[in-house]
Structures are given as structure tokens and as C-alpha cells.
Design a protein around this nucleic acid. Structure first.
Lengths: 332, 332
DNA sequence: TTGTAGGCGTTATCAA
DNA sequence: TTGATAACGCCTACAA
């Protein structure tokens, strides 16, 4: 295959490669006639600038790496979309890597991205191993963590304020007059679950309600089937609550199903509030009141933060927590 | 910022850059002692090979470009996941571009990818303009089209066989004893919608049922709200069908809601079948029988096809149509 | 086993 | 307004 370079174009045009370069980059110091002639030849020969060479010279690739922990999760679509929105406008490309929650893959991705000389990295880290952070730090790639909950304070981070989100959820139920609220939490070893449970309790206390340990259940597999079964069991005995707050929308969906099957009414007999606002929430048979996480915004903010790190001067580490929104539908 | 190159490492080690290169690439002809010494220095100085330089030399970037028409669509997650599965195993990276159904953005993406010298391109084209195809062809980048329906036969293409999918759907209803089937189709200007309607009619004819034009409705906005309204209207008058086949799952969801609200039973009074198998389908209050499109497989196959084009010799264009699967749940 | 030379395609610098 | 030269970091080919 015949490769067309500036040099080839220059030859045909009877000028030096440098002049071609000037034309390609729209530099001013070129005779209009020469420019025209060169452009014609560029077109004819189908010349395409080689950005690899340019990047090698300039030290910039106009490419950033994004490492997500689970590409399959629709959640990341929206985040990615936000990232793309910002980056596309600034002429950056995105190399997407899927760590698949595997620490080794994550590490490999980081190394490759750095070897490809991306201008920056956005990453949802799998575990809190400081190893890859220090590696990124050593090599001086600008990077921003997003999503996962980390205590590390010496890195830039952006995520959601889940304490406030779950606080809002429970407060909303209280404002509807509920005092006895069942909380169906996520697996306790999960840091997210702790945050959200914390917000729930905080809301109770704030409104003078004593947190009753019997009204807090842990759903180890926070999916719909599991939740359906558990709620079924709960409802089969005597119970004493008028509303249910959940760790996520899947649990809420399972709950809803179990309740409706017993011919109880939502929200009249039992109110339900979810968390996340997955697409499903609004489509449900009883549209679900829930807490929406601004995923798209997260992506945008993360990208913006990274850009300031890439183009700007060193500044202090930033830790940003975006606030969730209460979306009121028909289940409360 | 201080950049570490092979040359710098070589200096510190008192060898030539070439020897360092040999160590980095695990070439055999290096004295074990020298290798050890160099590795130590590499580690100490935090040397990271510059793949840009390597690519410039080799003409390969180990990167492929993927252009999707709507990054926000969860649909593409699964396709992307499949692509990643294959490519990651072969040490390729993915540059993801979002054309957002905008032809100009698509064109720009193609140009940029080629300038960045990706080894190949996977693309869901926005419209059938041959312009960018010819551009890709001129530059000889290997590329594969996926998803969108195109008549062009002189490119590699991979998608779903929608005629068969919708045929299966209607046939399934017929096998359950239904003879009067309402078909809620997608917008008629949409090529997908035509394909699916075709399959529906084919199934009727095949089983000796006359296609009744009154039993075919076009849903211009194939979402849940719109469908809910339309089905509500239909049910408010006298009707004469026992089952409903739909263009997609959203229409099926709206339909389901309208039916249940009238205290009709699914599938006893009216059976419903969807299309696509979105996540929602299995979570619905009446889990939805539907046609599953093998999206993940599509991604894998597309990536595999592209790889053969990248590494292999020129061969004839391939057009692959993957077969959908009938997923039977409770709505039929 | 190791080193030297040259080139991948581009651009910055300086000279003409 | 244009050209020559060197350099970005690496690797291949050849020489030592």
C-alpha cells in the first residue's frame, strides 16, 4: 500500500514538505497560489495527516482514557455520554477501557493508556489499592477518579452525595405522614449501602423518629427476584409499617410486585420509594418515586475537571459530591 | 517535566539505546546481567515505552475506532461489551465516537480516526450517504458496518435478521391459538419497521391467515406513553382480536398498562408479545414474552470480522444477519 | 552480545 | 514567502 506523506505531496507540487505542512495547518505565510496548488494535490492524492507523528512531536494526543468498572452497566452510558459531550466539543477522543471489576485488567488498562500517551485519565477504580494511583502520579498523567467511594483525599474525585440522597428519600416519606418505615438496604459490606443507610437514619432522627432495628433489613443480593421473595415473607406475617424505602430501584420493583400481588394498594396501603432512577422506574406499572442520580452531569463535571488539570496549572485536589434529586411519581 | 526515553535509560546504564529496546521488547540477545541492570534502571527512572513512536514506525496502533449513532442508548452497551470482549483479548484498544445521529459528526469522527491511524473502524452509519464509505475505502482502512439497515452490498455488514424475528413473534402467537392479532408497528418511514411488519405478515400468510389491514396500526412515536394512549382508545371501542404483536418492548409496555387498567387479564384475555428484550421486559409486572436480539453477539461478531480484515488478506465482502431468539415469559 | 545509522511523518527554528 | 535541518522516541538492519 502506497502511503501519502507531506513529503510526497511536496514533491508533486515542487515545494518543500515544510510548505505543505504550513498549508495543512492553515498557517498564514503561504502564497495563495502555492496554497491552492498544494490543496489540489492533497485532494488528488488523498493525503491524510498522520496524527501519530504530530503527537510524537507535540507531546499531546488529544485523546483521553476512560476506565469503567463495568461497560455492560447502562449506568455508565449516561456518564460516558456526559464525558463525550464535553470532550467532543474540545476535539478530544476517548479510549474506553473496561476493567470489568478486575483489578489486573484495570492495572493493565492504566499502563496501556499511559504508553499510548493519553492526555489524561478518568477512572472508576475497582478497589482501593493505592498502587495504580501512585503509578499514575509518578508518570504525571492528569487523572480524576469518579463514582467509587474512596477515602483517599490526595486525588481528585467526583461522585454522588448518597447520604443526602437517602436522607431526602426518607424525609419525603415522613412528609407524607409516614412514621413507620421499613428500610430495605443493600449488602452491608458495600460502602454505598452504608452511606445510604446512614442518610435514612439521619432523616428519622432529624424528624424525631427512633430508628427501629427491626425495621431495617439487609438485602444481600439487591436484585428484583431476591427482594420479591423477601418482601413476600415479610408481608405473610404481621407487619407494622406504612412505607418502604429501598437501597435501589430493583429492590423497589420486587417490593412493588409482592405488594400488588397481595391486592394491597400503592401508595394507599404501602408507599414505596426507590433509588437511582433507572429507566424502568418511570415505566413501572405504578411509576416509582425515586432518587435520581445526575449521571450525565457527573460525566460532564468529571471531564471538565480533567480538562482543567490537563490544560491548567497544578492546583489543590478537588473532591466533588453531586446532589441527587427527588423524583416524585405515583408510588408515594 | 522530565521525560524518560530509552536513550536516557541507556545513558544511565552505560549501554546503547538499542540494548534497552531489546530488553523492553524481551528480545533474546541480551546478556542476563545487562538485562537485569537495565531493568533496574527502567524501574528506578519509571521508564514507560512511547507507543506513539512505536506505532509511527510499525504502522500499527493496536487501536480501533467504534462509531455509534447514540451513545446514550443502552442498546449499544451490550454491543460495545461484545466488541470489547474480543478486542481486549487481542490487546486492542477502542476509541469510541458518538455521531449522535448527526451526519457531520459522523464524518468528522471518521476523518479523525483515520488521522489517528486506527487499525480499523466499526461503524453504525447515520444515513446511507456513500461519501464516507468511499473515503474509508480510498484510505484503505478496514471497516465493518453494523446495525443500520443498508442495501449496499459492496461493504462488510453485520446486523439482525428482523424479518425472521417478527415472523417468530407472530408465529408464536398463532401457535398459542390466536388468529386475530393486532399489530402495533413502528413509524413507516423507518426501515426497521418495514422489515418487522413484513415478518408479521409473512407469518400470517404462512399459516393461512388473511392479513387484515384494520388490524395493523402505526405508532408514530414508538414509546410507552404514546402507545398507552392509543391502546386505550382502541380498547374503549369494540374490538376483535385476542393478541397483540408490537414493534418494540416500549409499545408492549404501554399496551400492557392500558390492558391491565381495564381489568383485563394478560395473557388470558389478551396476549402480548414485544420485541428487543430490553432489561425492562423481564422486570415488568407481567414478564413480557419478546424477541431477543443478540446484541452482545453482534459486537463479538463485528469485532471478529474486523480483525480478519485487519490481519487477513482481502476477501469478498461479507453480509451477516444474526437470528433473534424468542423469549417466552408470561404475557403470552 | 552490543552498537551505529537511518528512517517512520511531522513541525519548530532559523536561514535564505 | 519558502527551504533546510534537526528532533520527537522507537525499531530494523547491519556492522562490530
Amino acid at each position: 500500500m502506497f502511503k501519502v506523506t507531506q513529503y510526497i505531496v511536496a514533491e508533486k507540487a515542487g515545494v518543500s514538505a515544510n510548505t505543505v505542512s504550513r498549508v495543512v495547518n492553515n498557517k498564514p505565510d503561504v502564497n495563495p497560489k502555492t496554497r491552492k496548488r498544494i490543496l489540489k494535490i492533497i485532494n488528488k492524492l488523498n493525503y491524510t495527516p498522520n496524527l501519530l507523528a504530530k503527537s510524537l512531536k507535540s507531546g499531546k494526543t488529544k485523546t483521553i482514557g476512560v476506565i469503567v468498572s463495568n461497560l455492560n452497566n447502562p449506568f455508565f452510558n449516561q456518564v460516558l455520554s456526559g464525558i463525550d459531550e464535553i470532550l467532543n466539543g474540545k476535539q478530544y477522543n476517548i479510549i474506553i477501557c473496561n476493567s470489568n471489576n478486575d483489578y489486573n485488567r484495570e492495572e493493565k488498562a492504566i499502563v496501556t493508556l499511559i504508553q499510548k500517551r493519553v492526555d489524561g485519565i478518568l477512572i472508576t477504580p475497582v478497589e482501593e489499592k493505592s498502587l495504580d494511583f501512585t503509578y499514575m502520579k509518578k508518570t504525571k498523567v492528569p487523572f480524576v477518579l469518579f463514582m467509587s467511594h474512596f477515602k483517599t483525599t490526595n486525588t481528585d474525585y467526583i461522585g454522588f452525595n448518597d447520604k443526602i440522597g437517602s436522607f431526602q428519600a426518607t424525609q419525603h416519606l415522613i412528609s407524607r405522614g409516614h412514621r413507620k418505615i421499613l428500610y430495605l438496604g443493600g449488602p452491608s459490606y458495600f460502602s454505598l449501602a452504608k452511606e445510604r443507610l446512614y442518610g435514612h437514619k439521619k432523616a428519622l432522627v432529624t424528624h424525631g423518629i427512633k430508628a427501629d432495628q427491626k425495621l431495617i433489613k439487609e438485602i444481600v443480593n439487591p436484585n428484583m427476584e431476591e427482594s420479591y421473595k423477601i418482601v413476600n415473607q415479610i408481608l405473610s406475617k404481621e407487619f407494622d409499617f406504612t412505607a418502604i424505602a429501598t437501597f435501589n430501584d430493583y429492590i423497589a420493583m420486587g417490593t412493588l410486585k409482592a405488594i400488588l400481588e397481595r391486592n394491597l394498594k400503592v401508595p394507599e396501603d404501602i408507599a414505596i420509594i426507590g433509588y437511582d432512577d433507572i429507566e424502568f422506574a418511570s415505566l413501572s406499572i405504578v411509576p416509582l418515586t425515586t432518587i435520581r442520580l445526575p449521571k450525565y452531569l457527573l460525566g460532564k463535571k468529571a471531564a471538565e475537571l480533567l480538562l482543567t488539570k490537563i490544560t491548567g496549572r497544578k492546583r489543590k485536589y478537588q473532591r466533588i459530591f453531586l446532589e441527587p434529586n427527588l423524583i416524585i411519581r405515583s408510588s408515594t
